[in-house]
Design a protein around this nucleic acid. Structure first.
Length: 187
DNA sequence: ACGATGATGAAC
DNA sequence: TTCATCATCGTA
């Protein structure tokens, strides 16, 4: 079962979508090869009121994708080194998105984008169709008991209220059952 | 604990 | 034009 995640799914509120992104697959097509990775860690950024969200400071050239339609990638550079990959969710005009922090075998948002050759060329591109990068449901089932919630990482600047929000979702998975016995990351 | 490394946005 | 800041990572 392989189904590209729809715009309608992503247009729901970010706090509903974020945990449901766990167990889905991030699929990268690059230089003629396709690689699918199970998403294991995400963070939600929820609108103009969320002081950790880029959208809270108003619309700028950098963050304008956040204010657009759900189902597009928002990619930006941090610390001059690392690209951060986010998928936009919710309603048009409401800046909200989900930072993909990890996939199976690659922990860390900067490492992940480096490994999959994800950069700002993908900023603003559609995530809901086969292109360079999209997401799929491949039938991997996640129980709520497998999801751990914690505060977000690296958002100390956001003030005590928003620093503490449990908007980080981690998929706890020991061993994954897969038909082939090979790695979950498929070429 | 800290340096790498550069875009970003705001102040001036 | 300058400045502080930054959704990080690797090495120590």
């Amino acid at each position: 079962m392989r189904k590209i995640l729809s715009r309608a799914f992503l247009a729901q509120s970010v706090l509903r979508v974020a945990p449901r992104l766990l167990g889905k697959f991030l699929v990268r097509r690059f230089r003629g090869k396709e690689r699918a990775c199970l998403i294991t860690e995400v963070e939600a950024y929820d609108g103009p009121g969320d002081l950790a969200c880029h959208g809270a400071k108003g619309r700028t050239k950098r963050n304008e994708v956040m204010f657009g339609e759900a189902g597009r990638w928002y990619v930006y550079l941090v610390h001059g080194l690392y690209s951060m990959l986010n998928i936009i969710t919710g309603s048009q005009g409401y800046p909200a998105g989900i930072l993909v922090r990890g996939v199976e075998g690659i922990e860390g948002p900067g490492r992940l984008t480096k490994a999959l050759h994800i950069g700002r060329a993908l900023n603003g591109k559609k995530a809901v169709k086969k292109g360079g990068l999209w997401t799929e449901d491949r039938g991997f089932k996640v129980r709520s008991s497998q999801i751990k919630r914690t505060p977000r990482i690296g958002v100390d600047y956001a003030g005590k209220v928003w620093v503490k929000k449990p908007y980080r979702f981690i998929l706890k998975v020991k061993k994954i059952n897969r038909p082939t016995g090979g790695p979950i990351t498929l070429i």
